[in-house]
């Protein structure tokens, strides 16, 4: 078959379909993953000892387990105790749990780095602890956590590919199907790779712009001068 025909009439349409699914997975997971991360980080740092322990354990368990295994548990395991998710939902739940755990770590690190004085000053003005957290500490922490959070977001883009392993036909799954049907392995996967590289690169650039926009004047981080 003609290369051009293959490319434009078979591979690209299939990949575009898969890309849409990938974007849907990401769109569904990212916001909740961020929210979960914030909740867990705040719960761990400022919550009741039991809540704090729960948050700590949750992160511990998720970080210690492969995401793929988590997906298997959610999709293949849960039905045996009565909870059945569709493949898409199972994937999203898994991604939220994973993304949330790593986000929580980054945010927690940022919370810790905020000086004690901020809380003290806020309370001196009459704010309750929770008001101080919401209006003074958290905004600053989220700002500082942007590099870490965006790093995690890029990981999310990449590990969304694992949804294929529980039968969701997202980008890499679409590529594999075309590859196995037409024996065009290298070409198909190279194309898939290019799409991911583009996604990741765009995100990286967008994040750099975001970081600059959001930076508080005078708080430039001292990064070692890279020669690149």
């Amino acid at each position: 078959m003609d290369q051009a025909v293959f490319l434009f009439e078979i591979l690209l349409p299939a990949l575009m379909q898969g890309l849409i699914v990938t974007l849907q997975l990401i769109a569904c997971s990212a916001p909740f993953g961020l929210a979960l991360g914030i909740a867990v980080a705040v719960g761990r740092q400022y919550g009741h000892p039991v809540i704090s322990w729960l948050c700590k354990t949750y992160v511990f368990l998720i970080k210690g387990t492969p995401l793929l295994l988590l997906l298997f548990i959610l999709y293949f395991g849960l039905p045996s105790i009565g909870i059945t998710f569709t493949a898409f939902v199972a994937s999203v739940v898994g991604f939220i749990l994973c993304n949330g755990a790593y986000n929580a770590e980054y945010i927690r690190g940022a919370l810790i780095s905020i000086k004690e004085g901020q809380m003290v000053a806020a309370q001196a003005l009459g704010m309750t602890r929770w008001q101080a957290i919401r209006n003074v500490i958290l905004p600053q922490a989220l700002c500082r956590a942007i590099p870490g959070l965006s790093n995690e977001f890029i990981y999310l883009i990449k590990y969304s590919s694992l949804a294929y392993m529980i039968t969701v036909i997202e980008l890499s799954g679409a590529g594999k199907l075309v590859a196995t049907k037409y024996f065009t392995y290298t070409e198909s996967f190279a194309a898939v790779g290019i799409v991911y590289l583009v996604l990741v690169s765009i995100t990286t650039i967008a994040v750099t712009i975001l970081e600059k926009r959001v930076a508080v004047p005078g708080t430039a981080r001292a990064t070692p001068a890279a020669q690149l």
């Binding site: 990449k158 590990y159 996967f189 790779g193 991911y196 690169s201």
Partner: peptide, 14 residues
């Protein structure tokens, strides 16, 4: 930039 899954497929099959 590439997911580990895609890298594995790319190298193993391709």
């Amino acid at each position: 930039g590439l997911p580990i899954l895609v890298l594995l497929f790319l190298f193993w099959f391709g």
